[in-house]
């Protein structure tokens, strides 16, 4: 299992407080589902919405509350591509690698970004500012190739355009 991300910031105490509040929020969601086992995927989805990713503590809490073995929770969390077990960067770049995007050169955009950012797909820059992911089709194939920067879909994307956008929104890098 991934190692937990422990931040050593000076605000550690208030961070703990926030984390606790979020845990309460998660508990509430499970309560809404009557702690049903079949709600596992929905709970995992909500948990990722709340925390941004699923760490060991969150997975264990869900296992305990829904009366599901931790292995089953971990199994589901790793089976589906949607779930992240590591803390993503502040900015998330996702490249669609669906068929239409691939045919239109998404692979070249991906390798350019891997070089520019110095990270492989699925990883984050060491300073935690940018993550680079791929996805299998967002269904906007007629606008291929598509790149998503912080939830904004950029259709008919070019290498240059994407790098420019990243500079603007993530600032300062490279």
């Amino acid at each position: 299992m991934e190692k937990d991300q422990t931040s050593e910031s000076p605000h550690a105490a208030s961070d703990v407080l926030i984390a606790e509040k979020l845990m309460v929020k998660l508990e509430k969601i499970m309560e809404e589902h009557n702690y049903q086992r079949s709600a596992l995927l929905e709970v995992l989805q909500k948990a990722q919405e709340i925390f941004g990713y699923l760490d060991r503590k969150v997975l264990l809490l869900i296992a305990e509350k829904l009366h599901v073995a931790p292995s089953q929770v971990y199994g589901a969390a790793t089976f589906y591509n949607f779930f992240r077990l590591r803390k993503p960067g502040e900015h998330i770049i996702t490249i669609c690698m669906g068929t239409a995007c691939y045919v239109k050169g998404a692979d070249k955009i991906l390798s350019t970004l891997e070089q520019e950012l110095g990270i492989e797909r699925g990883k984050s820059t060491p300073d935690g500012r940018i993550s680079l992911f791929i996805t299998r089709c967002i269904g906007a194939c007629a606008m291929a190739p598509n790149v998503i920067i912080d939830d904004v879909v950029i259709g008919k994307a070019t290498k240059e355009g994407v790098i420019e956008r990243i500079r603007k929104s993530a600032g300062g890098e490279n």
Binding site: Q36, S38, L40, A76, Y80, N81, F82, F83, R136
Partner: peptide
């Protein structure tokens, strides 16, 4: 309404059952 979580196989007719039941598809 139920949401998938990014698994191609989940569209398969018996895998979708597993997914709705909250398991690996």
């Amino acid at each position: 309404l139920r949401l998938g979580a990014g698994a191609f196989i989940a569209g398969e007719e018996t895998a979708i059952l597993a997914s709705i039941e909250g398991m690996r598809a």
